[in-house]
Amino acid sequence: MQGSAQSNVKELNGRAAQRGELLQLVSFHVDGEEFGLDILQVQEIIRVQQLTRVPNSPDFVDGVINLRGKVIPVVSLRKRFGLQQAAQDKQSRIVVVEVNANVLGFMVDSVSEVLRIPVETVEPPPRLTKVDREYVSGVGKLDNRLLIMLDLDRLMTMAEESSVMKAAAASAS
């Protein structure tokens, strides 16, 4: 519940600004872009472990992993954003988040650090990023870096819808 409340960065901005707070973000890289996730949404960050492929699953689901006895799906952000595939390396991590009361992992190229940025520097999403604007809740500026802040609720809700539509299309054909 807390996760979804915090996911709305705009709302968070509003509250944080009133108290003159900084936003705490976990930053990670996918295909050269730097992304930020509200730290309260991130449950943990783990190394890549052996994935079990799930047949007939939506194509952006890389597979499932065992997270201390819980089976959670891992979503490839590259596939989700329709970016070029890349092999996993030592830097690859799985960011475990909770979205809409579901725990899931995001496969990312690397996780860099926890950042604090002043809320005033967050701006509405620009038009030109590799990621669809719908999933972006804002862009944070830090020195000369740009952090794309993801709206996980929308990212996964739309993911669900698209997978349903695909399934429907498959059964119709």
Binding site: V54, P58, V64, V71, N102, V103, L104, S163, V164
Partner: peptide
């Protein structure tokens, strides 16, 4: 399985 994978048939 996770809610996101509930629609996979056969599992």
């Amino acid at each position: 399985l996770s809610a996101y994978l509930l629609r996979c048939p056969g599992l």
